[in-house]
């Protein structure tokens, strides 16, 4: 059997407007400490808490090439480890002596190592984004990788059947909390093998700095938008509390349209209602939508 490998590696780089406040730096340093101690890390938090960005930043600080996997319900072990993908045929026709025709033909199966195998083999950094979106049984191969540092490979693949994990291999996981829709419960055994850092959203200074950096809006106007979103988040009116993405959407649109973050500005009000009103209410629930919009109008008067 022929063995080939997935060969595209990622090199994460921060954007020029990447913000590293003391809050972010503290999380990154903690994560790097656990990695140095030999543990995989797991960023867990709701949408918009910066899990994936932090994972990429930690990977960047580790300085190794990255393989990135996104969890999916359809995932199976072969999507992590590798599998048979087609055949390779070979035919030799030897007619060197014109009166003698010699033909040889053979066919071999083609095995392609997938990203987990490649990362374990060459000591790369694996980022498994939203790993709880994969079925728990698909992640079984990770148990031995994280604990015994051995990857169990199918007997179909050439070789010894086991792959010793490279000492530089590092795994970084991200996931949404288990009460979220579209996720599976992770195995206790897998969760037990990693250090979980819970992300509950950014502190005020970080939220303002990120919104300002990503939108280019002035500091005072950014502060108003962030205060408004935080108040809506804390009002407990919303099905889905608005995240920092909401702040960035409002701020960037306002900047693009040269609006002002003021309740007197009709454009600003409309942007807030469109972005935050729809984001915070479950689709189809008209009553909830109007409750959120009402609350938002009330908050607009107070915070901008």
């Amino acid at each position: 059997m022929m063995v080939e490998e997935a060969t595209t590696l990622l090199e994460p780089h921060p954007l020029p407007n990447f913000v590293e406040t003391p809050f972010v730096a503290s999380i990154v340093e903690r994560a790097l400490t656990y990695v140095a101690a030999g543990f995989p890390i797991h960023f867990r938090g709701a949408s918009g808490t910066g899990k994936t960005t932090l994972a990429l930043h930690v990977a960047n600080r580790l300085g190794r090439p990255v393989v990135l996997i996104h969890g999916d319900e359809e995932f199976t072990t072969s999507d992590l480890v590798g599998g048979e993908h087609g055949y390779r045929t070979r035919k030799v026709i030897d007619n060197f002596i014109h009166s003698v025709l010699k033909t040889e033909e053979d066919m071999s199966r083609r095995w392609v190592d997938n990203r987990l195998t490649v990362a374990c083999k060459y000591g790369l950094t694996l980022i498994y984004d939203e790993f709880t979106r994969s079925r728990p049984e698909a992640n079984n191969a990770l148990l031995a990788v994280l604990q015994e540092r051995v990857l169990d490979l199918p007997a179909d693949r050439d070789g010894e059947g086991y792959l010793s994990v490279h000492p530089n291999f590092v795994a970084i996981f991200t996931s949404n909390p288990e009460e979220y829709a579209g996720v599976f419960r992770s195995q206790d055994a897998l969760r037990d093998r990693m250090v979980t850092l819970d992300l509950d959203g950014f502190d005020n200074e970080t939220e303002i700095a990120i919104t300002q950096a990503k939108s280019g809006l002035g500091r005072r106007e950014t502060e108003r938008i962030v205060r408004l979103v935080q108040a809506l988040r804390e009002s407990e009116t919303c099905d889905f509390p608005p995240t920092i993405r909401g702040c960035i959407m409002v701020a960037r649109t306002l900047k693009a349209l040269n609006g002002a973050a003021s309740s007197q500005d009709g454009l600003f009000r409309q942007i807030c209602l469109d972005v935050l009103g729809s984001e915070a209410a479950r689709v189809g629930s008209r009553a909830q939508v109007s409750r959120v919009r009402e609350k938002l109008c009330h908050l607009l008067e107070h915070y901008s």
């Binding site: 090199e11 994460p12 994936t52 790369l124």
Partner: peptide, 17 residues
Amino acid sequence: DAGQPDRRPWKRMPIQY
């Protein structure tokens, strides 16, 4: 040996965050 996992011809793709 950071950045040089081996001598294979890797395809490298930058990703910005």
